[in-house]
Computed example of a mutant assay.
Amino acid sequence: MKKLLLSAALIISAMASAQKGSVLVGGNVGFSSDKVGEAKSTSFEFNPKVGYQFTDNWTAGVEGSIASVDTDWSEKTENYKVGGFLRYTQPLSETFSVFADLGAGYQNESLNNANGIYATLVPNLFINMKKGFGLNFSIGGVGYNNIDGRNDARRESIGFDFGKTFNIGISKNFAL
């Protein structure tokens, strides 16, 4: 009986910081480097998020992204995104949870002064380090991009990049 009560107390205290009515603050950092022959491309991306957890499993909020892409064959490009996200979280234990973020919004690419929309679906693993502060891990997802610039034809892409990217993020839930 003591073990059952102790286990219940641990689960409740771990979930207390990620329950209905809390505010989520977090973000991911991504880096990739590709080399084909002598041509090299590197990119860096930062994605902050702020959301409100309106049920024990659902969070909605705003997200942004700042990315820099540097290649040997063209000028450096900076990309910006701003939009909303919806997150569904499923706890696996007091330490681990899985969640999926569905995000959509506006995007801009500096090189061609291009604008468009994006949509992504990204599964993640959350490791609760202490009191709702934790690490998020992602190895890719599914995405849609559509962008139209002054100097280029409209570009539309659907991507599936599991295993091609690796993102590490942090997040913290604050009780209100």
Score class of each variant (00 low, 15 high):
Met129Arg: 00
Ser32Leu: 07
Gly30Ile: 02
Asp161Lys: 08
Arg155Asp: 08
Tyr80Arg: 04
Phe85Pro: 05
Asp152Tyr: 04
Phe160His: 07
Val23Asn: 00
Ser171Arg: 13
Gly84Glu: 03
Asn145Gly: 07
Ser41Gln: 08
Asp161Gln: 13
Gly84Gln: 05
Val122Ser: 09
Ala100Leu: 14
Glu75Ser: 14
Lys131Met: 03
Asn57Met: 08
Asn146Lys: 14
Gly116Arg: 03
Val62Ile: 15
Lys49Val: 09
Met15His: 15
Ser43Val: 04
Thr95Ala: 05
Lys131Phe: 00
Val98Pro: 14
Gly159Glu: 12
Arg155Phe: 13
Val62Lys: 00
Phe137Thr: 11
Leu102Val: 13
Phe54Leu: 10
Ile11Pro: 00
Glu94Ile: 01
Glu156Trp: 04
Gly169Arg: 13
Asp34Thr: 11
Ser138Ile: 04
Gly163Met: 15
Leu86His: 03
Ile66Leu: 15
Thr95Val: 05
Ser7Ile: 08
Ile158Phe: 15
Asn28Glu: 10
Tyr144Gly: 04
Ser65Leu: 14
Asn47Ile: 10
Val36Ser: 15
Leu135Cys: 04
Asn57Ser: 10
Leu92Trp: 15
Trp73Ile: 12
Asp101Val: 14
Ser97Ile: 05
Tyr88Gln: 06
Ala39Asn: 08
Ser65Met: 13
Asp56Phe: 07
Val62Gln: 03
Asn167Gln: 09
Gly134Thr: 04
Asn151Val: 03
Ser13Thr: 12
Leu135Ser: 02
Leu135Gln: 00
Phe126Thr: 00
Tyr88Met: 08
Asp72Val: 07
Phe99Asp: 05
Ile117Glu: 06
Ile139Asn: 00
Glu75Thr: 05
Ile12Met: 10
Phe160Arg: 04
Asn108Ser: 08
Ser171Ala: 12
Phe44Gly: 12
Ile11His: 02
Tyr88Glu: 06
Asp56Val: 10
Leu102Ile: 12
Ile66Tyr: 12
